[in-house]
Design a protein around this nucleic acid. Structure first.
Ligand SMILES: [Mn+2]
Ligand SMILES: [Mn+2]
Ligand SMILES: [Zn+2]
Ligand SMILES: [Zn+2]
Lengths: 140, 140
DNA sequence: CAATAATTTTGACAAAGTCTAAAACTATAC
DNA sequence: GTATAGTTTTAGACTTTGTCAAAATTATTG
């Protein structure tokens, strides 16, 4: 990823301290929630409103600069790794989220058996399991 | 599926009118939301509290009698087709949800490239697209 | 620097679901 | 059948995640 200011200008978005900080927070904390990111931004620039965090995340997502993922039992998570159709591995215990390379290729990377007349544009895969830390905990 | 009363007794669940009605509603309306189901149950037995709908759906899900799916931008949906590891095809426009047979086999039906030490038990696949009705609408 | 357009903030609001304690019910044992 | 113990259901408050709308502030353009 190039520097956040360039990214914003390339997408015709006025550059603001809030946008820069959110973009940096997403880059430094992959798969963080809006709340996590607000926390990070506050440590960096002092203050930001909850609404602005959502505004910025929404506009960045709409422009395709970042990606939103929404696993069950979790608020939305964000990452700046876009355009490579990778998938995710989520811990049922603690929500820890890891990237998984797409097993098959470009999106949609899996072929639905019966498409029911739908025009499919994405195959989202979430692998569910238990991370090493949670496994250790449940064994003890 | 066998009859709801037998199912409940087999799982040591006291039989109540609410549970029977919710179970029947799930069977008759695959991929319905809690709200949809509450509506159905009210038509059948007259009244049920919102909390009871959630209580019943939770206990049935915990026992593995029904299954909960939670696609992005949608409240949870329920179905009684369990244990066959099938997947779903969801319309981005209207949320219409169709079953898709698993192309690969038993759960977890896909192999994560790097497991990150996780113990994976399920590969959840959601195919995203546009259903015929929504396609027609957006073309006009 | 001034004018304009866009963003940020504030505060109210909404949807989906959980928590609690009291009331109502079910199952079991006489 | 009744009484009892144990569950379930109910009602209402509450939480979390996110959106809406109007006013205040800031960025861009010339
Ligand atoms: Mn990722
Ligand atoms: Mn299904
Ligand atoms: Zn974990
Ligand atoms: Zn549709």
């Amino acid at each position: 990823m190039q520097d956040p200011e360039t990214t914003l200008r390339q997408h015709d978005l006025p550059v603001t301290a809030q946008r820069l900080a959110v973009l940096r927070a997403v880059a430094n904390h992959p798969h963080a929630t809006a709340d996590d990111l607000a926390e990070q931004v506050r440590q960096e620039i002092g203050a930001i409103s909850r609404q602005s965090v959502y505004n910025v995340l929404n506009v960045l997502t709409d422009k395709g600069i970042i990606r939103r993922i929404q696993p069950a039992h979790s608020p939305a998570r964000y990452e700046d790794r876009v355009g490579d159709n990778h998938h995710h591995l989520v811990c049922r215990g603690c929500g820890r989220t890891e990237d998984v390379c797409c097993a098959v290729g470009a999106a949609p990377c899996l072929h639905a058996h019966d498409q029911h007349g739908f025009q499919i544009d994405e195959a989202e895969v979430i692998y569910w399991g238990t991370c090493p830390a949670c496994r250790r905990k449940s064994r003890s």
